[in-house]
Design a binder for these strands. Structure first.
Lengths: 334, 334
DNA sequence: GGTAATTTTGAAAACGGTTTCAAATATTTG
DNA sequence: CAAATATTTGAAACCGTTTTCAAAATTACC
């Protein structure tokens, strides 16, 4: 448990002042090659590692960017996190995660911790934290949001072409001959959920099909809720040949529900999800879904934040969505 | 972009010294109720948040514990991360993640960052970092490992009853009448993989069944490798009625492979996994598997580390495994 | 060889907290 | 009421780094 060496230790060993050590550490100004070498040797010898905490205090920059997430456990946030990490790689900034667990109090606490740790920037993944607070934070440190909208900070929010994605998905079903297409929607307070539902209705109406409210059931983006929503749908007794789920997780739940009822996918019922999570390639059968690359969103969020930190505009691109046709959709049985 | 207020600002506003402000902040010693109230009011008024970086430097404790993980994206590590977070909750310590991506260089870099940030403790999740290094680190700061073994630091590693778990799994298959049971193993350098394979062979021999090397194929714990391994297995032409996979992810891949070949689960082939990831409840059909709660492991790792930080022995429990019988296993067809 | 311009260096202050120590104030006690 | 004790307080040092500033050493020039 011997103390870690400090710049002073290095300085003493290399017969220079701490200032000089700092200079070779940061490269902030020229130092004589001989001394520089001596310092480097001393660093090597004592296996010195500069204390980033002290450096942060001195510099007034922590070189960490806070990521306010909701769950460390879900595939969705995991991919996002990975993307952010990739986007930050090589920038010198490190990401620190804190989760809100979809609970206001936890979210507030997580945010407080991040801010107290003097993060240099913040990426907000989903969540319910009030817009007004986030706007205030953005006055202090740069902020980017993914998977949520912040009134008045639109250029700081990653936008996904939700409506166009679901339009394509439903259009695909229609092209396969489906006419009675159900929709399991997401939480209505969630902008993404609304936009996806809009794409659904637009696809129907643009094809001259009526929107039947009894074919729309609300879920909450979990597998469990997908399964439940399917039960509700079946209980209503309305006929349908295809289901468009507002996300992949609900599609998984629906898939299980159909299996339980002995309904085959895609023979009896076609199924389409939204997200294209990593796991969707390995469902049986592989899930037809709308890809919105979470990895890409994470990367873009990180890059946008880096731009903000460099005093440039965030320049966030709109995330395109793309229908990935796998094996849960088939031509409706004649 | 106004500067954050500091203790001095509070002190000035409350007509006390910075020392007194610090005292009410930490509660380290009594202060007169009147002054205390004044300080608290000033804190409220300026919306003051103590700078944790400065505090860390002063205290010599960062109150952060580093978590060296391999991937932010996989379900497996996600659940582990969540468990650690839960175990740390309320302790005052915060977890900071850095991932090694199963690459020595990245892992080294991630570790360096964490150490440079003066983490007070370290949790290592899997990975390849040399035992000798980890032993050295453990001399400086407390360390706990999950999902890996460290020679000489056995009491700091979470142990899972792998062999007993796979024994039960294979025993279950035998009880269902299966006699030709294949095994898709994990990376052989991985202790867990070995132990799981050992449980498999023990279950077979204890039932008087021969171990057929041609029914054992090596995978690398990914879905992809599971699918590939199944292809290899089928190509060998040996007959089998059940497959025991060394983890759930490979089981997913195998499931897809079987689907592609038109082999029904569990009617034609029974399938058992290992881990019981969250998603295994929603595969079709739901996967019979051996549960080793990753959440629990994360929690225990966190608690063990907290004990180490309190100078107590880690007292890590052995993680029990439990067969969860769902719907991918059935009595062998007569 | 002496002066001017340049490079290289170290002392000291700063970052924002906590803590030690001794002084000042308040409370008991005889 | 004085002395002894207990409580509350602020000045100053410290944590480990960076940076400013001016001094010292080196190099260039006439």
């Amino acid at each position: 448990m011997s103390k870690q060496p400090t710049v002073s230790d290095i300085a003493r060993l290399a017969h220079v002042s701490p200032s000089t050590v700092s200079r070779v550490l940061t490269g902030s100004s020229r130092v004589h090659p001989a001394k520089s070498a001596a310092v480097r040797a001393a660093i090597e010898q004592l296996n010195f590692r500069p204390n980033l905490t002290a450096r942060a205090l001195s510099l007034g920059k922590s070189m960490v960017i806070g990521i306010l997430t909701q769950s460390m456990m879900s595939q969705f946030y995991g991919e996002l996190a990975q993307g952010i990490e990739e986007g930050l790689a090589g920038s010198g900034y490190q990401g620190v995660f804190a989760s809100g667990h979809w609970e206001s109090l936890d979210e507030q606490a997580a945010l407080d911790i991040l801010l107290a740790r003097q993060v240099d920037g913040l990426i907000v993944l989903g969540g319910y934290h009030p817009d007004i607070d986030l706007r205030a934070i953005n006055k202090q440190i740069p902020l980017i949001a993914v998977g949520r909208h912040i009134e008045g900070l639109e250029e700081h929010c990653i936008r996904v072409e939700n409506a166009s994605g679901s339009f394509q998905a439903v259009r695909h079903l229609i092209d396969l001959g489906h006419r009675r297409i159900a929709h399991i929607s997401g939480i209505p307070s969630h902008l993404d959920a609304c936009e996806r539902q809009r794409g659904y209705t637009e696809a129907l109406t643009s094809a001259g099909l009526a929107v039947d409210e009894r074919l729309i059931v609300e879920g909450n983006f979990t597998e469990q809720s997908g399964l439940l929503a399917l039960e509700t749908l079946l209980a209503r007794g309305s006929h349908f040949t295809a289901i468009f789920a507002a996300n992949d997780q609900m599609a998984y739940g629906i898939r299980l529900g159909l299996y339980r009822r002995g309904l085959r996918v895609p023979d009896d019922i076609s199924l389409v999800g939204f997200d294209d999570l990593l796991g969707s390639v390995y469902t049986t059968p592989p899930l037809t879904t709308v890809r919105q690359s979470m990895l890409e969103q994470g990367r873009q969020a990180a890059c946008g934040l880096l731009r903000l930190l460099a005093n440039e505009p965030p320049a966030l691109p709109s995330i395109t969505t793309e229908l990935v046709i796998r094996e849960t959709t088939a031509r409706v049985r004649g």
